[in-house]
Nucleic acid binder design. Structure first.
Lengths: 204, 204
DNA sequence: AATTTTCGCTTGACACTGTCAAGACATCAC
DNA sequence: GTGATGTCTTGACAGTGTCAAGCGAAAATT
């Protein structure tokens, strides 16, 4: 047989372990993560994860890469059909915060870089892919509104602002209460961000 | 006798434990932190920290509070003698990033909120004190430049941008190499941030 | 001055953690 | 069928946070 998700004894243990990891971190936060508890939830022995991911860092890195891939997909979906560069950047900002708050298990790992192996290929590819989306967005704004815009500075500030907002406003654990409230007001906040930043990015 | 720093057997064990914690986290990152290793470095038994701080969370909360107090002091020192509101906010932004990168042991704990007890009094006081400095700075800009500026939105974005910048650019461990390079270019980056944001905050 | 209480800290134990080496065992290639 | 491969288990190791009990010095009380 050739089911994509079926390999050997378990079926697709790596994916099951990632899923259990996300579930566990969503419940207890990155601190509450434990390789053995993940193994327990996946119904395998305590040393099974190490076989696939080497160490706990390997597993978390894989989860982080998955998170960045999700983010990239969210970016692409958010800008679909939008032409105006400012609208596109605004949509990406909202998509970033929304993805972060809706996937707290992933997000918590993605942005605590000491949990992650920066040299991992899949991780690098997904994360630079995400940043590239932002750079493209800023470049489009430069082309449309302000030829002398410093793309790196603008990109750094944009990413910092949105990332900082998400970090400061995502609570983990205890997602339900707080994150939903933030999501409710997030659109308006992002609109403010966009307006304030765009006034700066545009030529005067 | 009545030496302020001398209490009992050790002298001032709580402070010594905080110092050892900062040292340890600077070396190995928040993940590498261990209550027993801290006790070892302070030269006391493995359960001594719990006696003063209850749990590892208590110790880390105390370290975080110390970090916010340091930040408040850095804010106040940075704006001293400056009158122009924009200059003052710019100086505060630089002070934030500088403090974060120069005190990575503290900063790492301050901004991973699951390590910290949000209900701790000293922690609350120090952290809202820091945020209040920012609010005051934004308010001054509103008064001087733009009566209709939304203070909360501007404050959120400012804090997010600066915090996000610090988070994304502080490496831990491995401080020496990276953080110094960031610090070298940080002033210029913060000036860009200020310029871009101020164009947005000012009335058009 | 003697004695009790208080407080700082130690000791020992518990269940838990990540990682490593060795083995079991199903599948695949041949 | 036989060996090789890769998946997973088992067992052990040192290390962890936290708890209960105990020790001994200082302070308070008498």
């Amino acid at each position: 047989m050739s089911m994509a998700t079926s390999t050997y004894h378990h079926g697709d243990l790596p994916s099951a372990l990632r899923a259990a990891t996300v579930e566990l971190i969503t419940e207890r936060g990155p601190t509450g993560f434990s390789l053995r508890e993940v193994a327990r939830r996946a119904g395998v022995s305590h040393a099974a994860p190490a076989h696939h991911f080497g160490s706990s860092k390997g597993l978390l890195t894989s989860v982080a890469a998955e998170g960045f891939a999700t983010l990239v997909a969210a970016f692409d979906e958010a800008v679909e059909g939008l032409d105006d560069p400012i609208e596109r950047l605004n949509a990406m900002g909202k998509a970033y915060v929304r993805t972060a708050l809706n996937n707290p298990g992933h997000f918590g790992v993605m942005c605590t870089d000491e949990l992650v192996d920066d040299a991992d290929e899949a991780f690098i590819e997904a994360s630079v892919g995400a940043y590239q989306r932002l750079l493209d967005g800023i470049t489009a704004i430069r082309d449309a509104h302000n030829p002398s815009l410093d793309i790196d500075a603008a990109a750094t500030m944009t990413w910092s602002a949105v990332h900082g907002y998400a970090v400061l406003h995502s609570a983990l654990p205890g997602v339900a209460e707080k994150n939903e409230r933030v999501l409710a007001t997030m659109d308006e906040t992002m609109n403010s961000f966009t307006k304030m930043m765009m006034d700066g990015y545009r030529a005067r």
